[in-house]
Structure formats: structure tokens, C-alpha cells
Amino acid sequence: MNKITSIALIAGLFVGGSQVATAQEKSDNGLNPLSLRPVHDSNIAYKIGLWRRVDLREKQNQPLFSYENEITKHLIEGVKSGILDAYSEEDLEERLTLEEFNERMFKRFEGGGLSQAEIDAGFGDETASDDGWGDAGSSDDGWGDASDNTQEPEAKSTSSTSTTTAPQDGYEMFPNEFYILEIKEDWIFDRQRSRQYFDIQTITIKIPAEASNDGLEKTLASFKYKDLEQFFRNNPNAVWFNEENTAKHINLADAFELRLFHGRVVKKSNSLDKYLDEQYGSAQEALNKSQQIEYDLIEKEHNMWEY
């Protein structure tokens, strides 16, 4: 009798702790407001959070990143047109204004000023005033006294500098420069339907480290997947490119539904909120653990049928 009571008490504590941990993800009706097809809390037998890193340059992911039809292009256009809400981070606590979003997309040239290609082409060289008609070291315009025209060229030079310096500090990055997505999802086993679900919560566009202004990987914007699903379905151009049959491209919403992408697990929900490479100290160990998590999920689904 005592043993049964103890087991019941432990089970009650486990369930109660689970409810507290997930309360912030639920609305008052017991459903996750970020879920596309929410499962009621009372029907969830098991759930963990997963973060997947999707490299759009990988062969399996290239249909999401086809030429001039990149998924990032559609997301950026959605924000600029005011259709999509962009958030500063995956917690979705701060919505970005269009100005803030554009600022994040702006790539500054190293050290400011012109790009190396423009410098090599001869633009912006202020050390010489040669206009192609005479000696660069002289202010003589070839028509008479050099002093007669000193003021006017100087004024033009000042005006030219003031109107061209600002736009030469950088450029707005192109959609194909954003090739990293991070998908946050819940792995859920629904006891009522006796099946597993991958419930995507958010999709985040990352700025690659080599493209970032400070050399660190950063977030461009995060989006509610629930919003994206409807946005994709309303956009006939938002397609997963079918290389085998170009008459049968697939809408991006269906592509995510069918899991037509590869995303390596880089983080599993944990008390310290750390990524795998932070937990295990090396990229190799993190990769091994990522693969192990995938195997564990398959085994977990199989074992849940025994309950």
C-alpha cells in the first residue's frame, strides 16, 4: 500500500512539474497559441523542444533556395510589404519595425567607404584631382590662369562628396546571402491519436558570421510559423522547386508539412538553455549527440505504443 502511494505521489509531482514548465506556452484553454494544429495539454503524453539548423546550401535544401525564388526572398518581401510580422528573436517578445528590419539587413563595408571592387575600378580616389585633361598635381584647367577657377571646382568637389558618401558605406544584403534558417519545433506524442507530431513554432533567418558586420552570427528576424503557413499558401510563387518535374512544384507550406528539408538538431530543451556544442564542448561531439537524439526520438515513438 505504501509503495503504491509513493508511486502515485511521484507521478503527481512529475505531471505537476510538467504543467508548470509549459504553462507559459499555453493559453487559458490548454492549447499552444503558436501551434498550427494544437494538441490539448491533456492529450500530450510526451513533449520536448528541438532547434534545427537548416543550411539552405545543402543538396536536400536547395529546392527551398532556388535561383531568385529563395524562401528568404519571400520572407523579406513579406516584411517589406507589411504582410508579415518580424520579431527580433525567437521568443517573439519584440516586434521589429520596418526601419529596424532594414537596418539589420544593411551590410557595411569593412572600414566604411567604397567596396574593394569600386576602389579597384578607380572610384573615390581623392588623392588626385586629375580630370583627364592635364596634370593631376596642378589646378590649371588648360585655359588660362589656374587661380581663376580655383573656387568653383573646390565647391563642386565638396558637393559631390556630401551627396555620395552616405550610400557608399554599405548595401542592403541580398536574399541569397541569408542561407541559414533555425527552426524551433516541439516533438509531441499525442496519446489520443497515438502518433507523433513535429509542431513547428518559429522560423528564424540567421545572418552568417562572414556576412555580419562584426563577424558574429546574428539573427535577422524570427517569424511565427503559423503566420508563415498562411502566407505561403496565399503566394503561388512560394514554391519548393521540383527538379525532377518542373510542372509539379510544391508550395512551401506543403514542403514543410511533408518535411522536405534537412535540419540538424543543434539544441534540445534543457534547464541551462544551451546549444549542444556549448554542452559538449566540441562540434564533433555536438554532431554525434544530434544524431543520437534523432535515433532516440524514433525509439521513443516506438516505445510509446506500449503504454
Rank of each mutant, 00 (worst) to 15 (best):
T150E: 14
D41S: 14
K26R: 11
G281Q: 05
A166Q: 07
D85S: 12
L276E: 02
I205L: 02
G170C: 02
Q279K: 12
N29H: 04
N32M: 04
M173G: 09
S222N: 01
E93T: 08
I180R: 04
S282F: 03
Q116N: 02
E25R: 10
R191N: 14
V79T: 05
R193L: 15
T22F: 08
D140C: 11
T219V: 02
N43H: 13
G142T: 09
K73I: 00
G49F: 05
P167Q: 01
E103V: 15
A221S: 05
R193Y: 12
Q168W: 05
E301V: 14
K47P: 13
E100D: 11
D277N: 09
E229C: 06
A211L: 15
E25N: 14
A117M: 03
N303D: 15
S269Y: 12
F231N: 01
F232P: 02
L34E: 09
A283K: 10
Q24N: 11
M1S: 12
F65P: 00
T219H: 07
S159L: 13
V39P: 04
F178M: 06
S212F: 04
Y307W: 13
T165E: 07
P167N: 01
S115W: 00
G82E: 06
T204W: 01
N213W: 09
G113I: 02
Y87R: 03
N149G: 15
S159F: 15
P33D: 01
N288Y: 08
D120F: 03
K47M: 11
T161Q: 12
A23P: 09
N303I: 13
Y67L: 03
D55K: 02
T165K: 06
F223R: 03
P63R: 00
L34Q: 06
L56E: 01
E93H: 12
S27A: 08
E110F: 03
L31V: 07
A21E: 06
S18Q: 12
H262K: 08
K156A: 15
A247Q: 13
I188Q: 12
V265N: 11
E244M: 03
I10W: 10
M1R: 07
N251Y: 00
T72C: 03
D85W: 12
E68W: 05
S6V: 12
A166G: 08
S66Y: 02
N69R: 05
A8E: 04
D141W: 13
R57C: 00
G17C: 11
S27T: 06
A253Q: 03
I207L: 01
M1W: 15
T22R: 10
T22D: 11
N43A: 14
D214A: 04
F232W: 06
K26E: 06
T164D: 01
L75G: 04
K300E: 15
G49L: 10
L258F: 05
S66W: 01
K267L: 05
E68M: 06
K300P: 14
T204S: 01
I293S: 04
D135V: 13
E89S: 13
V239F: 00
T164V: 02
Q19L: 10
L258W: 04
G263V: 00
Q230W: 09
E278I: 04
G170H: 03
A286R: 03
H249D: 00
I4E: 14
R264L: 08
